[in-house]
Design a protein around this nucleic acid. Structure first.
Lengths: 227, 227
DNA sequence: AAGCGACATCTAACATGTCAGTTCTATGGA
DNA sequence: TCCATAGAACTGACATGTTAGATGTCGCTT
């Protein structure tokens, strides 16, 4: 008899959250666009309650902003906000690397190598989605291994804001950030038990991202035709 | 004619959030107690909607936990969780100190000195509430000055979990953590423009807190009489 | 007596209705 | 033509009703 996993118990609000978040990160709902709970509810085929839950979560992550009683809309890509989020994520990744390295298993290292391989392949193929996903998985190994749920939650909270920028700059972004070489160094440091080194390399990887936010053309008033 | 500030426009969900959070931090609603949205709504004199908003925020901060369709209750004081939160807050405070110091104004420094004075006085008088408040204000100067809203949000998100522990240990906590001397050193470093030093001292202050979480007697099955 | 299953009861998730604050728009006056 | 203003229209905040899932209890079966 096969092993039985508990069935996935999904809440509508979580499903709605993921759907809306991904649409925003991918740019399907452009920066500045106004989002009405009623409209989204109808499009997703559910009621306003779970949609509002999802929107308030997104507001906490900086992907949407709302003024009481008047509007809720997708935030614009303000370089400063992205840089701020990246600084927080970087601090978390540093912390995770430092505290995870001493406890890494062989399986963890293998997972990191595999993810780096996928990252390299995806970058070569120009597959942005796959590249970002592989990158998430690579760093996710350390974040998970450090076992600090507050770190995990904080990383997950602010990563989408950054991914949205990378998604917009795809070509350049996945190339610049994807630098598999740096990730290779990171894995070596982890394998060698060098927590301090791993933390330093992690910082370097994410600092590049903070600079990405300052590149020209990031916020050319965004999409003026917001609809 | 006096300057007119906009009237505070308060949302019920925020009011509810603050009320419930403070009740939990102070221990008025003990760890492990179950909270029913309907009951809270009645006690606060409003409907379930804003209460549920508040509870979902509190769940994100680790002060309550809920299992779908069954219960929502105040989390127990698990040392590990507190330590995890403290590690995150520490990382944020370090980051804030490092990036705020170069931009501190004379007013900022004065505010820090004043807060430290209040902290010293409150600790001497054994006034836990005032001491924790002064401590918040002191560090809050740096957090605000660094201008990174993600940092601010993250600090505010995880501080209550820590405060709850301090509140429980009042005597010892405010004495151990209150150490006005360290805070004095921090202020000196800030005044001298020593960002690295300020960051290091900040780390030291918060590391003491992480250790506080490991002291014996923190989680003696908590309050077994939960009602 | 032990184990199983039907059922009663409870809670939170979701749906829907209402109300008030905000913003847009059209109109009239300077 | 521009601005002020009234009010219409819109939107989100809050209230309340409904439903599905969870848990505990009790009686039946063996």
């Amino acid at each position: 008899m096969e092993t039985l996993r508990p069935v996935r118990r999904t809440l509508l609000r979580d499903t709605a959250y993921e759907a809306i978040r991904d649409a925003i990160v991918r740019g399907d709902i452009p920066p500045g666009a106004s989002v009405r709970d009623g409209e989204l509810a109808e499009r997703l085929g559910l009621s306003r309650a779970p949609v509002r839950d999802a929107l308030s979560r997104l507001a906490g992550e900086g992907l949407v902003e709302s003024k009481p009683q008047s509007y809720t809309r997708v935030t614009r890509l303000v370089p400063r906000d992205v840089r701020d989020a990246a600084a927080v994520v970087r601090a978390m990744q540093e912390l995770a690397a430092r505290s995870a390295v001493p406890h890494l298993t062989a399986g963890d290292l293998a997972a990191m190598r595999a993810a780096n391989e996928r990252l390299r392949a995806a970058a070569a193929a120009g597959d942005t989605a796959a590249a970002l996903h592989a990158d998430d998985e690579l760093h996710g190994v350390l974040v998970t291994a450090c076992g600090n749920r507050a770190v995990t939650a904080t990383v997950e909270r602010y990563t989408p804001l950054i991914r949205r920028l990378e998604w917009r700059q795809f070509g350049t972004a996945s190339a610049a950030h994807g630098s598999a070489a740096l990730h290779g160094l990171l894995i070596d440091a982890c394998a060698g038990g060098d927590a301090e080194g791993a933390s330093r390399i992690t910082a370097e990887i994410w600092r590049a991202l903070e600079e990405l936010a300052d590149e020209p053309g990031v916020d050319p008033a965004d999409d003026p035709a917001v609809r």
